[in-house]
Lab assay of single mutants.
Amino acid sequence: ETFPLDVLVNTAAEDLPRGVDPSRKENFLSDEDFKAVFGMTRSAFANLPLWKQQNLKKEKGLF
């Protein structure tokens, strides 16, 4: 299941849709939104070091 970017960005855990893991908001973006937000594919993002993934998520309001 995916959700629009505005539902996930800068949203407190208690305000997220049911079933969304607040530590993994990026997994609930569509592939198109994911690429638009991070400028890379999911596989490229997954290959980044964890610290870099976290920094990007913070920068984009998805942490």
Rank of each mutant, 00 (worst) to 15 (best):
E1W: 12
E1L: 15
T2C: 09
T2Y: 15
F3R: 04
F3M: 03
F3S: 02
F3N: 02
F3C: 05
F3Y: 15
F3I: 07
F3T: 03
P4C: 06
P4H: 05
P4G: 06
P4R: 03
P4Q: 08
L5G: 03
L5D: 03
L5W: 08
L5V: 09
D6K: 10
D6G: 09
D6R: 08
D6L: 11
D6E: 14
V7M: 14
V7C: 11
V7L: 15
L8R: 01
L8H: 04
L8A: 03
V9G: 04
V9S: 06
V9T: 09
V9Q: 15
N10V: 09
N10Y: 10
N10F: 07
N10L: 06
N10S: 09
N10C: 12
N10A: 08
T11G: 15
T11S: 08
T11F: 07
T11N: 07
A12H: 11
A12M: 08
A12Q: 09
A12T: 07
A13C: 15
A13K: 10
A13T: 14
A13Q: 10
A13F: 13
E14I: 08
E14S: 08
E14W: 05
E14F: 02
E14G: 08
E14M: 07
D15Q: 06
D15C: 14
D15I: 01
D15K: 05
D15T: 03
L16G: 05
L16F: 07
L16V: 07
P17D: 07
P17L: 04
P17S: 01
P17G: 03
R18M: 15
R18A: 15
R18H: 15
R18V: 15
R18T: 15
G19I: 10
G19V: 14
V20C: 09
V20N: 06
V20T: 06
V20S: 04
V20W: 05
D21A: 03
D21I: 04
D21G: 01
D21M: 02
D21Y: 03
D21F: 01
D21T: 04
D21E: 06
P22C: 07
P22Y: 03
P22N: 04
P22W: 03
P22S: 06
S23K: 11
S23M: 15
S23Y: 15
R24H: 15
R24N: 09
R24L: 09
R24M: 10
K25G: 03
K25N: 03
K25D: 04
K25M: 14
K25Y: 04
K25A: 07
E26S: 02
E26K: 01
E26A: 01
E26F: 02
E26D: 03
E26T: 02
N27R: 08
N27D: 15
N27Y: 10
F28T: 02
F28K: 04
F28W: 15
F28D: 04
F28L: 06
F28I: 03
L29I: 09
L29S: 01
L29K: 01
S30V: 03
S30G: 06
S30R: 07
S30Y: 02
S30W: 01
S30D: 09
S30E: 03
D31R: 04
D31C: 06
D31M: 07
D31Q: 08
D31H: 09
E32C: 08
E32T: 13
E32F: 12
E32Y: 10
E32K: 11
E32A: 12
D33T: 07
D33F: 01
D33G: 03
D33N: 06
F34Q: 00
K35M: 15
K35W: 15
A36S: 12
A36V: 13
A36L: 15
A36C: 09
A36M: 14
A36Q: 15
A36D: 13
A36G: 09
V37Y: 04
V37R: 02
V37F: 05
V37C: 12
V37L: 11
F38I: 02
F38G: 00
F38A: 00
F38V: 01
F38L: 08
F38Q: 00
G39Y: 07
G39C: 12
G39N: 15
G39P: 00
G39S: 11
G39L: 12
G39E: 12
G39I: 02
G39A: 11
G39D: 13
M40I: 08
M40R: 01
M40S: 01
M40P: 00
T41S: 10
T41Y: 04
T41V: 09
T41N: 12
T41F: 06
T41W: 05
T41P: 11
T41R: 05
R42H: 07
R42V: 06
R42N: 03
R42F: 06
R42G: 02
S43H: 13
S43E: 13
S43W: 11
S43L: 13
S43Q: 14
S43G: 12
S43T: 12
A44D: 12
A44S: 10
A44T: 12
A44W: 08
F45R: 00
F45L: 01
F45G: 00
F45T: 00
F45C: 00
F45M: 01
F45E: 00
A46G: 11
A46Q: 13
A46F: 11
A46E: 10
A46K: 13
N47Q: 13
N47Y: 11
N47I: 13
N47F: 10
N47G: 11
N47P: 00
N47K: 13
L48I: 06
L48N: 00
L48Q: 06
L48C: 02
L48K: 04
P49D: 10
P49E: 08
P49S: 09
L50A: 14
L50Y: 12
L50H: 09
L50E: 13
W51N: 09
W51R: 11
W51Y: 12
K52Y: 13
K52A: 08
K52N: 10
K52L: 12
K52H: 13
Q53W: 00
Q53P: 00
Q53L: 00
Q53Y: 00
Q54Y: 11
Q54G: 07
Q54L: 11
N55S: 13
N55K: 13
N55D: 13
N55P: 00
L56A: 06
L56R: 01
L56S: 01
L56Y: 06
L56G: 00
L56I: 08
K57G: 01
K57A: 05
K57Y: 04
K57S: 03
K58V: 12
K58R: 12
E59D: 11
E59K: 10
E59S: 09
E59P: 01
E59H: 06
E59V: 09
E59Y: 07
E59Q: 12
K60V: 15
G61I: 02
G61P: 02
G61K: 05
L62E: 02
L62K: 02
L62C: 04
L62Y: 05
L62Q: 03
F63Q: 14
F63C: 12
F63G: 15
F63N: 12
F63L: 14
F63R: 03
F63E: 12
F63T: 13
